[in-house]
Design a protein around this nucleic acid. Structure first.
Lengths: 193, 193
DNA sequence: GACAAATTATACAGATCAGTCTACATATGA
DNA sequence: TCATATGTAGACTGATCTGTATAATTTGTC
């Protein structure tokens, strides 16, 4: 990919994570990426919508892969999911508590008239949910999906609080509690076998 | 309070919940509240910061009271907290899934240079956390605070997902899971007595 | 009614927004 | 060498943003 195009997407992602949809504006992206207006609109003729959407999709895929990596490396599923939270905590600290989840940031900045963006975020979250649920195989599918949704909700909320408090506590606490909850839920199933 | 001042705060709250910090701008507030520019800056000479901050504080207090109400009316604490989630689900549906938590919306829209707003949101969340923890009295204080933080994180995340999905599912699922988790945690304590 | 204070209306300023346009540079390939 | 496609630069437009200034209007008080 053209280096300028890549730089634009990187910059967009960073800006989204730091200050939401309104922070990933034309001028901000230009300033951070170093690309010019002409270059931006050459690669992203549909404007802000387009560069934001592409950046989110890249992040969504990277994050999902990171999760699956963490889960498959851990001895148990619940430990793996706790590790996802702990990994997020480490990232957060490394970036000085300045950046959160870009998808969450966009979701809460959505107004009524940007339906395509809402649909994109919805599909990203749904994909995360399904990929997570696939690792909760001992549970019946409906239960697995419900738990996966809960995990994502908890993750987004904890991420938000961590950035607000400038502390890893919300994420590490959530890691513990989610592991406890998951173990309990998985135990009820294995007991019924 | 002057009726126009009140209308401005109401409008601000609605706009924040619907489309975040960037949605509660000068023109939006004027249009929705019916107040004029002159009126706005008469009552809120410090501008956007001021009307947003005051609106958030009003919401914060109302929400905290609502929670305590729900908890004190329920037979058990965990049921009470589940009821908070379920009440949020009902509100969400009543408003056609168009509005979320105004505090959360502001938090994720924060950029680095608006430190006073961050501090305000931080103090609101901290107050919620302490008032929630006060109802988890069987637990040691540190544990109660940790659980309260987790509950808030989960709540904010579920609220966000519910608005995104236009469904009450994230909130109702979270209600169930949080109740389960709380009962388990409270049980471990009462057992050790 | 007369006067002062509180409130409201609106024109305006300067900054910034997303996005367009045209001119220019650079690479590719015949 | 020339032609064409690809990419870059930055001035420019019009809309919208927050906030100011001033004047008109209402309201309360004597």
């Amino acid at each position: 990919m053209n280096p300028n195009r890549q730089k634009v997407l990187d910059a967009t992602l960073q800006l989204l994570a730091q200050s939401g949809l309104s922070g990933a504006g034309l001028n901000d992206v230009i300033a951070l990426s170093g690309a010019s207006r002409g270059s931006l609109y050459h690669f992203f003729p549909d404007g802000k919508q387009q560069w934001v959407a592409e950046a989110l999709q890249i992040y969504a895929e990277a994050f999902a892969e990171g999760c699956e990596n963490a889960i498959s490396k851990a001895p148990t599923v619940s430990q793996g999911i706790a590790n996802v939270f702990l990994f997020a905590a480490k990232m957060m600290k490394a970036r000085d508590f300045r950046s959160g989840c870009p998808v969450g940031a966009v979701v809460l900045d959505l107004d009524c008239d940007s339906e395509p963006m809402r649909v994109l975020c919805l599909s990203i979250m749904a994909q995360w949910q399904h990929r997570l649920a696939a690792h909760l195989t001992p549970l019946p599918e409906a239960k697995a999906l419900a738990l996966a949704k809960m995990i994502i909700a908890c993750f987004e909320g904890a991420f938000m609080l961590a950035r607000l408090e400038r502390s890893t506590a919300p994420l590490t606490l959530a890691a513990e509690q989610m592991a406890t909850l998951l173990e309990a839920q998985l135990a009820t199933v294995s007991r019924s076998h």
